[in-house]
Structure formats: structure tokens, C-alpha cells
């Protein structure tokens, strides 16, 4: 089986521990090489003053054209509040069966919901969002298994419910996708 490369793009400052644990998660779940890169795109271009949020579709498009190739997937780690036109917010976004994904930790912070700051929980939530979005880029759709990482999450509490692994069914699909890509 060919080993795929996934580029981890940091848009803003992230502690080394976070980047490291995310790299390990990706390498483990997708059996891929992980390259770490600083993202150079200017996020202010994607700021929507009316909504006071950042346009996720446009950022995703930019990441795809600048960093991803047919054999390389790219995921951008962000700290900004993301939106798509029809939804009030999103945690992350990816092209289904595509080569790019984005994930933000803005809405994952406890403080946003009036709760006590918890850095450990924040990192864990962020890792889950990253793996979930990359799962979409590998063609996985939402899973009904309540603890599978591909379970749809619209609240942070939903993220806390699930584990940072694919269920057996999603794992099988992932392996099939890998094999068909070879």
C-alpha cells in the first residue's frame, strides 16, 4: 500500500504539544506520513465584517489550491470563528473525497459557553475535529455509531461523547478507499 502524505498547516500559533499529538493521531488513524508547515495565507481576506466570522468555503478553496495535490492532502489548523453562508458556525470543513480540510478550535473552548477553562479538553476536542474532517476528505460520511469519530457533532458536548478512533465499519471503508487509491 502506498503511504500517503498529509500536510498539517498551522494558521496562527499552536503549542508544540497540540501539533505533536495531532500529527500522531493522523499518522495512526490514516497510516500516513505527516508534514508540518506554517500556513502563509492572509486570513483577513476571508473576514466577513457583517457576520464577524471567517468564510470557511473560501479558506478551504485556498488551502486546496495552494497546498494540496493529487497525492497530498492538506489540513489547516485555525483559531478563528468559521462560517458557511447557510450556517451560523462550523467547527471544520472538508471536501468529501477531496484533498483539503480545515479545522478551528475557536468554538471548542469551554470559556465560550461560560464554563471553566480546560486546555486538556480543548486539545482533545480539536484532535477529534481534525480527524473527523480528514475522514471526510477520505470519502467517509457521517456515522450513526455514537462513539465513532465520524459521528456528526454540532455541539462541543457531542464531540466529548465520541472517541478519537474510527469504528470498525468506518475503518473498513477507509482501508477499501486506501486500496482503491493505490
Amino acid at each position: 500500500m502506498k503511504t500517503l502524505t498529509i500536510i498539517l498547516l498551522s494558521c496562527g500559533h499552536f503549542e508544540k504539544e497540540i501539533s505533536k499529538s495531532i500529527s500522531e493521531d493522523i499518522a495512526r488513524e490514516f497510516k500516513s506520513n505527516v508534514h508540518f508547515k506554517e500556513c502563509t495565507i492572509d486570513l483577513s481576506t476571508y473576514y466577513n465584517p457583517r457576520r464577524r466570522q471567517y468564510d470557511a468555503n473560501a479558506i478551504l478553496q485556498e488551502i486546496s489550491s495552494l497546498y494540496a495535490t493529487d497525492s497530498t492532502k492538506a489540513i489547516a489548523l485555525l483559531r478563528v470563528d468559521l462560517f458557511v453562508p447557510i450556517l451560523t458556525y462550523i467547527f471544520g470543513q472538508a471536501f468529501l473525497n477531496g484533498n483539503a480540510a480545515i479545522a478551528s478550535l475557536h468554538r471548542l473552548r469551554n470559556e465560550l459557553y461560560g464554563l471553566k477553562k480546560n486546555d486538556l479538553l480543548l486539545t482533545e476536542r480539536f484532535r477529534k475535529v481534525v480527524i473527523h474532517e480528514l475522514g471526510h476528505s477520505f470519502g467517509l460520511i457521517h456515522c450513526q455509531n455514537p462513539i465513532c469519530i465520524m459521528r456528526s457533532s454540532t455541539y462541543v458536548e457531542d464531540l466529548d461523547q465520541k472517541e478519537i478512533h474510527f469504528c470498525n465499519q468506518c475503518k473498513t471503508i477507509l482501508i477499501e478507499k486506501h486500496q482503491s487509491a493505490d
Binding site: N57, I86, L96, H136
Partner: peptide, 17 residues
């Protein structure tokens, strides 16, 4: 009639299968 709305919803529902 808005393309961005159609695309966003399309992507959202496609992810759900």
C-alpha cells in the same frame, strides 16, 4: 438562487450520506 447557499447545504447533506 444563491450558489453559496446551495453549495453549503449540498456539502452538509452529502457528509450525512
Amino acid at each position: 438562487d444563491e450558489e453559496s447557499v446551495r453549495d453549503s447545504l449540498y456539502n452538509w447533506f452529502i457528509d450525512d450520506g
